[in-house]
């Protein structure tokens, strides 16, 4: 079996006084695509934010390991430079900072050096083409006034340039129309390679029809309640979360 990229053990996370993650265990290996599915408010975004180190999400118990290193308390920017990437469910706007300048700054941070401007522009243009993005986007401010779907493409554009080892995609499919979903999923498949792993958070089978997961996890009330192969996706699509919610209640 390949190397473990992400290992989460007994992770408990609180927002304010409220506990949201109640003991999450998850192991993701290099070369794998995992899907995480669960009802609204079950804590999926909390998990992704906690992995990335968002200050509002307080880890009260448990550990997060990346390539064998404990990153539970590692500063966010350091994790990112090491190759952890989160595509946000709701990306924020950075007014006044153009997409071009932003991409240049983040690739420089990730790679530790600023390559020739010409090469960078070519690389950016190539990635934008892959994601069927209008070149005019490069001059706009990051996420400022972007439509929901445009924001998601912009997240994928960043992923394409940062070449992370672990990418967490938090509902990248939401806000995309049917054609855009196909374009973005094609892009994801092209970016994916056996050296990396992806954790895809989604509500729908449609994305997983394009990007085939190796493992699927059902996430209910702050925990992974069941894991399996892609047959779980079909089961969820037809039955909903009922059975899993009961199971989680029984376990609690």
């Amino acid at each position: 079996m390949s190397e473990v990229l992400l290992k989460i053990e007994g992770l408990r996370v609180a927002v304010g006084e409220k506990e949201i993650l109640k003991g999450v265990d998850l192991t993701v290996r290099r070369g794998e695509i995992h899907a995480l599915m669960g009802p609204n408010g079950s804590g999926k975004s909390t998990l992704s934010n906690a992995i990335m180190g968002h200050p509002h999400y307080r880890i009260t118990e448990g550990r997060i390991w990346f390539k064998g290193e404990d990153i539970t308390e590692m500063p966010t920017d350091e994790k990112a430079r090491k190759g952890v990437f989160l595509a946000f469910q709701y990306p924020v706007a950075i007014p006044g900072v153009t997409v071009t300048n932003f991409l240049r700054a983040i690739t420089k941070a990730r790679r530790g050096e600023e390559g020739p401007a010409k090469e960078f522009r070519a690389e950016m243009a190539g990635a934008m083409q892959t994601l069927a993005m209008d070149p005019a986007f490069a001059r706009r401010y990051v996420n400022d006034g972007f439509s929901g779907g445009e924001k998601k493409r912009c997240e994928m554009l960043q992923m394409a340039l940062l070449k992370p080892e672990l990418a967490i995609l938090d509902e990248t499919d939401s806000g995309l129309d049917i054609d855009a979903l196909k374009v973005v999923c094609d892009g994801i498949n092209r970016i994916f390679n056996p050296q990396m792993a992806m954790l895809i958070i989604t509500h729908y089978q449609r994305m997983l029809n394009y990007v085939t997961p190796h493992r699927v996890h059902v996430f209910v009330a702050g925990r992974v309640v069941e894991s399996g192969g892609s047959e779980l996706v079909a089961a969820l699509e037809s039955e909903g979360y009922d059975r899993f919610i009961k199971k989680s209640l029984a376990a609690a």
Binding site: D77, P95, G96, V97, F102, Y141, L162
Partner: peptide
């Protein structure tokens, strides 16, 4: 946080946001 999550060092985040402003 968005900038940090992309690997921008903390000390540079203020600069980038202020410049953009």
């Amino acid at each position: 946080f968005y900038l940090l999550s992309r690997g921008i060092p903390l000390r540079d985040t203020e600069t980038i946001i202020t410049e953009g402003f």
